[in-house]
Amino acid sequence: MDLGQFFGRYGALLAEGTWASLEMTIISTIMAYIIGIPLGVLVVVTAKNGLRPHRAINAVVGWIINITRSIPFIVLLVFILPFTRLVVGTTLGIPGAIVPLIVAAAPFVGRMVEQSLAEVDSGLVEAAQSFGATTWQIIYKVYLRESLPSLIRGMSIVFITIFGYSAMAGTVGGGGLGDIAIRYGYQRYQYDVMIASVILCIIVVQVFQSIGDIAARAIDKRK
């Protein structure tokens, strides 16, 4: 079977799988950031030397992040099935995959954001305070603004991690490249299809890593 025949037979399947993987990953990444940014900010702001130190809030948010991150994704996926059904009404298809992906990724994003914000020079925070900035103004005009290049670099790491998780979510009903590789490669011994899906995974990861690197470099004004 030559390449023409191969793509004739499996092209549509692979294209559909790539699209399903991207859809799961992109939607989950966006949702994970919507939840994860406030988590990361909260940890930084309530830390001992933060803008508003608060031991209890800091500890609780820290625990939530750590506990969620301790559960292996494939276990989490099954563990929260009732919750997934409650939220989206199904455990199948892309909606059924996105819920566990968000639950797993949001705390991860929280930690990534925390690390980026921690890189911001405390002297800048002090300077902003000296000009009469409020806590909110410092959060988004200093912490988030000054760490933007680092946040973007973190985002490509998050994207690639969720992309990997989405392969697992796919096998329990979400579809996507991971699902194709397992179904054809593992269950039907069609190695050519498995190799093609692996190559597509590599391309997706490379593309998003490059986009992240280029974007971060373009907006970073430090030399």
Binding site: D121, G123, E126, F131, K141, E146, I219, R222
Partner: peptide, 29 residues
């Protein structure tokens, strides 16, 4: 704090803002 300006040993300028953006910062607040 608005009525008291302050400068620092390591300048503490916002690296991601232009010179203009740094000087306008207190007014933006």
């Amino acid at each position: 704090r608005e009525s008291i300006g302050m400068i620092f040993q390591n300048f503490s300028l916002f690296q991601q803002r232009t010179v203009l953006g740094n000087v306008t910062f207190p007014l933006e607040l």
